[in-house]
Write a protein that binds this DNA or RNA. Structure first.
Lengths: 152, 152
DNA sequence: CTTCATGCAAAACATTTGCAGCTGG
DNA sequence: CCAGCTGCAAATGTTTTGCATGAAG
């Protein structure tokens, strides 16, 4: 489904990003639209290369540079979150572009994004002990997902 | 001071790493010893290049490759922690090589490593909500340190 | 129309690797 | 001695950049 159903939170994200693009007088090219759709509607945190491969199924002449440039733009607009992994690879979340905790499987690479209430508490304790004022954070837990636990 | 004063926690770290190196029958070259000293006794989380420049003051022919190889070895021994930043740069902590929260100044890059009690709570909530079993984590908060707050 | 985006290739980085020669234990 | 380490340079992988052409607004 690619409708603009306002009840669909994934389509809502696409719509929101498009309006921010227009607002700032950036151009809406077919490549950009496609990249935005992929980033905003993927729940599996794709890599640059995965986005690139996916765009190419629709626009075979698209270059990686365009993917990088679009992602850079979306990062500046705070409409996509870059997840930098300890191994140096990057993956992207355009559905929930604000900092939030991740549970990352070191075996199958599956990522979960649970709603966590004790983040504020941790943040507050950090503020008290350091005197820093924080604008963003990165909270990633690495280990085995339930499925990979069973297998091992 | 470069004594082996057991009361000095920095020297204790050096001693501990050296014994792990010997234990596993790795060799103790002068370059390695120097790199280990730098990583274990720096409180300011140096980058590879900073370590490299520092080693070269003592052994001018040292190559970056050696620094990388030594850091890789220490990572495998879990005697140094790699701090991967969102901008892609890496910095290292050989003094507290286990996962712990960081407060990182986005202006002057100063890092603080406070003792935080509510980490276990957060970890437990993550475990309950995802079913994952975690082996390590990354908890980094980005913002302005007290000094940079005053300046701005 | 005019400006901005695209696509290509080259450049820029950070890190890794292959290998000959050296050296710690 | 000799397995393992060093230093050099080349290779790698990822992201960025310059520039001519093309298309959005």
């Amino acid at each position: 489904m690619t409708t603009n159903d306002p009840e669909n939170p994934l389509e809502e994200r696409v719509t929101r990003i498009l309006s921010r693009i227009r607002e700032r007088d950036f151009r809406l090219t077919p490549q950009r639209l496609t990249i935005i759709r992929i980033l905003a509607t993927s729940k599996d945190h794709p890599s640059v290369d995965e986005v690139y491969q996916e765009v190419r199924t629709q626009f075979p002449t698209t270059s990686v540079a365009t993917v990088y440039k679009t992602i850079t733009l979306l990062k500046e607009l705070n409409e996509v979150l870059e997840l930098g992994f300890p191994d140096g690879s990057n993956r992207y979340d355009g559905y929930r572009p604000y900092p939030h905790p991740h549970a990352i499987c070191t075996n199958c690479r599956k990522i979960m994004d649970p709603e966590i209430s004790s983040v504020d508490e941790l943040s507050e304790e950090m503020r008290k002990k350091t005197g820093y004022t924080f604008s963003f954070h990165r909270l990633d837990f690495f280990g085995l997902c339930p499925e990979c636990q069973r297998k091992s």
